[in-house]
Design a binder for these strands. Sequence first.
DNA 1: GTCTATAACGTGATAGAC
DNA 2: GTCTATCACGTTATAGAC
Lengths: 206, 206
Amino acid sequence: MGGKDINKSTEEKIKAAARTVLYKKGFAATRTRDIAEEAGMNLALINYYFRSKKKLFEIIMSETIAVFAGKLMQILNDQATSLEKKIELIAACYIDMFTEEPEMPTFIVSEIRNHPEAMLKRIPVKQAFSQSYFIKQFELAVAAGKVTEPNPFHFIMNLLGLIVFPFIGKPMLMASAGLNKTQFNQLMQERKKSIPIWIKAVIKAT
Amino acid sequence: MGGKDINKSTEEKIKAAARTVLYKKGFAATRTRDIAEEAGMNLALINYYFRSKKKLFEIIMSETIAVFAGKLMQILNDQATSLEKKIELIAACYIDMFTEEPEMPTFIVSEIRNHPEAMLKRIPVKQAFSQSYFIKQFELAVAAGKVTEPNPFHFIMNLLGLIVFPFIGKPMLMASAGLNKTQFNQLMQERKKSIPIWIKAVIKAT
DNA sequence: GTCTATAACGTGATAGAC
DNA sequence: GTCTATCACGTTATAGAC
């Protein structure tokens, strides 16, 4: 099983390298050679372990969406947390995730554009969202008059927009404000606290 | 000059086709053959008029950024409009722009990721923003105690996030809410009015 | 499992006729 | 200016030695 362990290890090395390169350059712009070089391995091993560039990409893509959407659904469906707490948890969770993997959001939106089937088939997004515990809580809050914007779709767009957009627009924003990486990350940390406050203002302002 | 007119026309046809295909697929994934087919013209004409795929791309990219950033700067620098009016104008302008060109925002963020030099060189974003009339107005509002979030950078991130993110996340959002194109556009139109209201709530909530 | 060498293919670009 | 035919190159993928 020493052999097995080494196999597993090289396979994981290739996947990790693929993730790094694909996140940064996207499917069409990355060459299998880039992945092999990043992994410090021979080009032929990629086809040996993953059959093709496309198969490897689909694995990375699937796992990425699973992490991204899974974490969101997990928080939205937690019956032990309030609506307010859910907002805080989502902001903190995604700001940490994207601070560690800054290329992930742009990778997701770019590749979903180029391969819409790849995600629509994989996850029953619609049911997962409309049947979530969050929706029940939100409707209750609307009925109780605590929320003046009654559309949960606007709510989730606004929340995700406030969280995700700075990471997607990072190059533009950093350039226009003259920020370095540390300053940018500092600002994102501040947003963990301010986004929940803003969202509460937003859902009462309509 | 009949000849000249025809030339101009084919050149413009190629540019229009290139814009369509590039917006949808990005630089790396589009083939010059795709552009030729979209334009209903011969492959060789692309090189005849634009020398190379890259040159053609750079023209499209430049014009796109010029339109996108130019419109924003124009509104931010207008000395005749109040801060509140500027928010309304920006929301209305970009929601209309992206409703007509839905692939534009994702094109911009994807290609800036892949060619960061291409934009950073082209426009002095930093000075344009920090020296804009908007910044003066914003600082005045802060000094007058009208705005409790004193960081204009957060302000612009939030505004752009609320406007742009729904268009970037469109495939995900449409799938998770089960919307068709008309319903989506309807929601975006609603946001022309609600975003300014939300932003006012946001800048007073911190 | 890992390497080298190479096949098979797609794509950007051009030469040259019209 | 526009077309057809083709070159030149880079890239994915595989065959076969080790």
